[in-house]
Structure formats: structure tokens, C-alpha cells
């Protein structure tokens, strides 16, 4: 039972990171129907920028918002300069453009920071009325222990989700963005600046991705190929939850994180086991997709005659 709980919690933590990156993917997909293959590499690049700031002596809580700002700026820049010229093109073309960005980001990071893995700091400890937040070590919660960093990740994922929910539901910009996602033409006719909303979407998405990058960099060392595996899990999570549902992205991420851990631990080592956990997880996703072809929370595709 202990082992089971342990695997669950670890799975929830890594699943939250997958979910965050999936959320970043969904934010772009729902307004433009583009799968952004550069999402992971963008997060990796911004995490490297954060590492440099930290290396120069910037405090963690100074570096964190700074990285988010830089990521948001970078996201807006990419949308405005690189994606905008191909806006009306077939979706596959835009996907290829994001693959091009993937190559550029990966190469630039390797060129600038080198391929040697680097340690990335965890958020420093904060004491609020005797209760410890963040930091190193583990928290004993009865049947099992949870590392503080895992808790941090889960809290961040939930927090960002809540913040985005509030943003989309209760702010004028959020409303305009939802309208843009639903029907760009009608939105434009209603006076919404659709192009600007897409730019905001990209910068939001880049910022969310940056959080995922910063959080996972402490678990797996910081290096250029760091986000590749995470990106693939994030895609799977986004598809599992439904590509147009932000809630689905997080839920999908959690499901994948947990099931990956459980499959690795509880299937026969002989012919499945840890080596095959990715394969089995993907198989589960395909089975779910066969039952619900647009993911768990995805809108049913309606066919208009």
C-alpha cells in the first residue's frame, strides 16, 4: 500500500508537469488548431535563461517572474513575426514551421549553454507561521512521504489552472480570447482584435510552458534535450483530455503521470515492466481515444453537411 501511494504521488507530480505543458499546447491549439511542436523547446530555452539569471546571482523569486515575462515576450514575438505570415496556410504548414522553431531553439540552446547537464535550483524554503513551504526534504503524511518539490509542482499546476480559469471567465481579455477561439470571424466583426488575442494566447502559453520547464528542470537535470520526452507526454495528455479543453490537459497529464508509474511498477517484468511503460501508456491512450475520439473532455466533432 505504501509503495502504491508513493507511486501515485510521484506520478501526480510528474503528471502535473505534463499537464502544464499540455495546457500550454491546448492554449495555442484551441485558438489556432495548431499543434505547437516547439512548445517543449521554448520552455527549455526559457529555463536556460532562468538558469543564467540564477547563476549571475539573481534570487529564485526574482528569477521566476522574470523568466515568465521573458517567455511571454518571446511567445508574443514568435506569434507576431514567424507565425503571422503563415496564418492562413494549411495547418500542416504551420506545424512544419513549429518544427523549424523546434530545431532552432534546440540548436541555439546547445550552442549557447552546451550539452552538459546542469543542476537547477528548487524554490527556496519559505516559513509561514511555522508551516514550511517549498524547499528540500520530504513531508510525512502518514502512510507515505511526499517530497516538497513534488508538492510544489502539484500546487503550481493547480494554482495556474485556477488563475487561468479566473482569467478566462472574469476578465474582458479572457472573454475576448474565448470568443476568438470559438469563432474568429464573428469575433472580428464584433470588434475584437483577433490578431492581438492570438499574440496574447501565444505569450500566455509560453509562460505556462516556462513554469513547466522550471519545475521539471530540478527533477531531471537541465539540458537541451530535456523537454523532448516531456513534450511527447504532454501531447498525449492534451489529446487524452481533449485538445480544446484546458481542464482536460491537466487531467490528462495527471492520468498519464500516474498510469506510467503504475504500469512501470505493477506489470510483469518479463515481457512488460519499466522498459515498456511508455508503450503501455500510449496503448491505454489509444484505447481511450477509440471510445472517445476527441478526448475525455473534448468537444464532439460535429459534421456539417
Amino acid at each position: 500500500m505504501d509503495e502504491f501511494l508513493q507511486q501515485m504521488v510521484t506520478g501526480l507530480a510528474t503528471g502535473s508537469v505534463y499537464g502544464l505543458l499540455a495546457l500550454a499546447i491546448v492554449l495555442i491549439y484551441r485558438s489556432t488548431t495548431v499543434l505547437n511542436f516547439a512548445q517543449g523547446e521554448l520552455a527549455m530555452l526559457t529555463t536556460f535563461i532562468g538558469w543564467s539569471i540564477w547563476e549571475w546571482g539573481g534570487h529564485y523569486w526574482l528569477m521566476f517572474p522574470l523568466v515568465l515575462l521573458i517567455a511571454a515576450g518571446l511567445g508574443a514575438f514568435i506569434e507576431r513575426v514567424i507565425i503571422r505570415p503563415v496564418e492562413g496556410a494549411p495547418t500542416l504548414n504551420i506545424i512544419i514551421v513549429t518544427l523549424g522553431l523546434f530545431a532552432i531553439f534546440n540548436n541555439v540552446a546547445t550552442w549557447r549553454w552546451g550539452g552538459i547537464p546542469k543542476g537547477f535550483p528548487a524554490p527556496p524554503e519559505i516559513q509561514v507561521t511555522g508551516v514550511k513551504f517549498f524547499g528540500e526534504g520530504a513531508l510525512d503524511i502518514g502512510p507515505t512521504v511526499v517530497s516538497y518539490h513534488d508538492l510544489t509542482i502539484i500546487v503550481f499546476a493547480v494554482g495556474i489552472m485556477a488563475a487561468l480559469y479566473l482569467f478566462f471567465q472574469y476578465t474582458p481579455v479572457g472573454l475576448a480570447m474565448r470568443a476568438t477561439a470559438q469563432n474568429p470571424i464573428a469575433s472580428r466583426l464584433m470588434g475584437i482584435r483577433v490578431g492581438r488575442m492570438l499574440t496574447v494566447g501565444w505569450s500566455l502559453s509560453a509562460a505556462v510552458g516556462a513554469v513547466a520547464g522550471i519545475l521539471i528542470a530540478h527533477l531531471i537535470l537541465l539540458q537541451p534535450p530535456m523537454m523532448m520526452g516531456v513534450l511527447l507526454y504532454a501531447f498525449a495528455a492534451a489529446v487524452l483530455g481533449g485538445l480544446d479543453s484546458p481542464v482536460g490537459a491537466i487531467v490528462g497529464g495527471l492520468i498519464i503521470g500516474v498510469s506510467e508509474n503504475l504500469v512501470g511498477t505493477y506489470t510483469p517484468q518479463e515481457w512488460l515492466g519499466p522498459d515498456m511503460k511508455l508503450t503501455v501508456t500510449l496503448l491505454i491512450i489509444v484505447v481511450v481515444l477509440l471510445i472517445r475520439p476527441t478526448g475525455i473532455f473534448g468537444k464532439r466533432a460535429l459534421r456539417r453537411v
Binding site: I96, L99, G100, L101, F102, A103, I104, N107, V108
Partner: peptide, 15 residues
């Protein structure tokens, strides 16, 4: 070392 970035830029330009 930047050959891959060159490749990425070529992809984007073609598109």
C-alpha cells in the same frame, strides 16, 4: 554547430 538551426530556418522560410 548551428547547422540544425539553419535547417529549421530553411523549413520556416520554405513554408
Amino acid at each position: 554547430e548551428l547547422s540544425w538551426a539553419f535547417y529549421g530556418a530553411a523549413l520556416i522560410l520554405v513554408m
